[in-house]
Amino acid sequence: LQLFIKTLTGKTSTVEMEPSDTIENLKAKIQDKEGIPPDQQRLIFAGKQLEDGRTLSDYNIQKESTLHLVL
């Protein structure tokens, strides 16, 4: 599924993920695209901070969801 990652600067990146992927996997993919180390990334979806060990489906993240990346 395609996700949009929006940064505080207003920049939006697109990443392709599976519902079974963990937040950790997602942060690794963001690191590949943006060069931001996972330990500096905080991802927010629906007002919640996402935890590394959980999966996208745990948070009911659907295709074309927008996640907010806070550093």
Rank of each mutant, 00 (worst) to 15 (best):
D32K: 13
L50A: 02
E64P: 05
L1Q: 03
Q41Y: 14
H68C: 11
L26R: 00
D52W: 03
I30C: 00
H68K: 06
I30F: 03
Q2N: 11
K6E: 09
K29R: 11
K11L: 11
S57W: 07
D52M: 06
K11M: 11
A28Q: 13
K11S: 10
K48T: 13
I44P: 00
Q62K: 12
T9V: 08
T12K: 06
Q31Y: 15
T22V: 05
K33P: 02
K33G: 05
K33V: 12
A28W: 10
Q31T: 09
V15W: 07
S13N: 08
F45D: 01
I44T: 08
E51M: 12
F4R: 10
T12W: 12
P37Y: 05
S57N: 10
Q49E: 15
H68R: 07
I36F: 11
T7R: 12
I44H: 09
G35L: 04
D58C: 02
Q40T: 08
F4G: 03
D21N: 06
P19F: 09
S20A: 08
D21F: 04
L43A: 00
P37D: 07
F4K: 10
D52A: 07
G10W: 03
T66R: 05
T55N: 06
S20T: 12
E24T: 08
L71I: 14
L67E: 01
I5M: 02
E51I: 08
I44F: 15
T14M: 14
N60C: 04
E18I: 09
N60H: 09
Y59W: 02
S57A: 14
T55M: 11
S65E: 07
R54D: 05
S57P: 02
P37T: 05
M17I: 11
G47V: 01
P37S: 07
R54P: 04
T7F: 15
Q40W: 10
Q2V: 15
Q62I: 12
Q2T: 15
S65D: 14
E64N: 15
G53K: 11
D52L: 06
K27A: 01
L50S: 01
P37A: 08
A28T: 09
V70L: 14
L56Q: 00
T9K: 11
L71A: 08
P19I: 09
K33D: 05
R54K: 14
G35Q: 05
Q2I: 15
D58H: 10
I30S: 00
L67T: 02
L3S: 01
L26G: 00
M17E: 00
T9P: 06
K48S: 09
I23Q: 00
D58V: 03
D21I: 03
V70Y: 14
P19T: 08
L3E: 02
L69M: 07
Q2H: 12
E24N: 08
A28P: 00
D21G: 09
K27T: 01
L26F: 02
T66K: 05
V70C: 07
N25W: 09
V15R: 00
Q41L: 09
F4V: 11
D52F: 04
N25G: 08
L69N: 01
R54H: 13
Q62M: 10
K6N: 05
G10N: 05
S20D: 12
V15L: 11
E24L: 14
G53R: 09
Y59H: 03
E18C: 10
G35V: 02
K6V: 14
E16D: 09
D32A: 14
N60M: 07
T22K: 08
P38E: 07
P38C: 07
I44K: 05
N60Q: 08
V15D: 01
K29N: 04
I44D: 04
P37H: 11
T55E: 03
V70M: 12
D32W: 11
T12G: 06
P19Q: 08
S65G: 06
K27S: 01
I44L: 11
T7V: 09
S57V: 07
E16K: 09
D52H: 06
L26H: 00
F45K: 03
E18R: 14
L8D: 12
S57K: 12
L3V: 09
Q40I: 11
E24S: 12
G47C: 05
M17G: 05
L56E: 00
R42I: 15
D39F: 11
E64Y: 15
T66N: 04
K6R: 10
I61E: 02
I36R: 02
T22Q: 04
E18W: 13
R42H: 11
E16Q: 11
A46S: 08
D32T: 11
P37V: 05
D58P: 00
T12S: 08
Q49P: 10
E24V: 07
I23P: 01
I36T: 06
K29C: 05
D39M: 09
T9C: 14
F4I: 12
D21V: 03
D32N: 10
I30N: 00
Q62P: 12
L67Q: 01
L71T: 10
M17R: 01
I30P: 00
T12C: 11
Q62D: 09
L56A: 03
Q31N: 09
M17F: 11
E64L: 13
I36Q: 03
M17A: 13
Y59T: 01
L69P: 00
E34C: 14
D21A: 11
P37C: 05
S65I: 05
S65F: 06
H68F: 14
N60T: 04
R42T: 14
K63W: 10
M17L: 07
L8F: 11
S65Y: 06
E16H: 13
L67A: 02
A28Y: 11
G53A: 12
L1A: 04
L50D: 00
L50E: 00
R54Q: 07
L69Q: 02
P19W: 11
A28L: 14
S57D: 09
H68E: 10
K63Q: 14
D21M: 08
Q40E: 10
Q62E: 11
E51F: 06
K11V: 10
D39N: 12
R42P: 00
D52R: 03
I5D: 01
K27R: 06
T14A: 09
P19S: 12
D52P: 07
S13Y: 15
G47P: 01
A46P: 01
E34W: 15
Q62T: 14
E64T: 08
E64A: 12
I23A: 01
F45Q: 03
P37F: 05
K29A: 10
I23M: 02
L50F: 02
E64V: 06
A46M: 14
S13C: 13
E51G: 04
L43C: 00
P19R: 09
T9N: 14
Q41M: 15
E16Y: 15
A46H: 14
T7C: 13
K63N: 15
Q62N: 09
L69D: 01
Q62L: 11
L1K: 04
Q40M: 12
E24D: 09
E64C: 11
L43Y: 07
L69W: 02
L67P: 02
S57E: 12
Q41C: 05
G47Y: 04
A28K: 15
M17T: 05
K27I: 03
Q40A: 09
Q31A: 14
S20N: 13
K63G: 14
L3T: 02
K11N: 10
E64R: 11
I5H: 00
K6W: 07
L3A: 01
Q49Y: 13
Y59E: 03
Q49R: 09
S65R: 03
A28N: 10
I5K: 00
T9I: 07
E64Q: 12
L71F: 10
G53H: 14
N60A: 08
Q41R: 01
L67M: 05
H68G: 04
V15Y: 15
L67G: 02
V15I: 14
T12P: 04
L8A: 13
K27P: 01
K27N: 01
T55H: 06
Q2W: 09
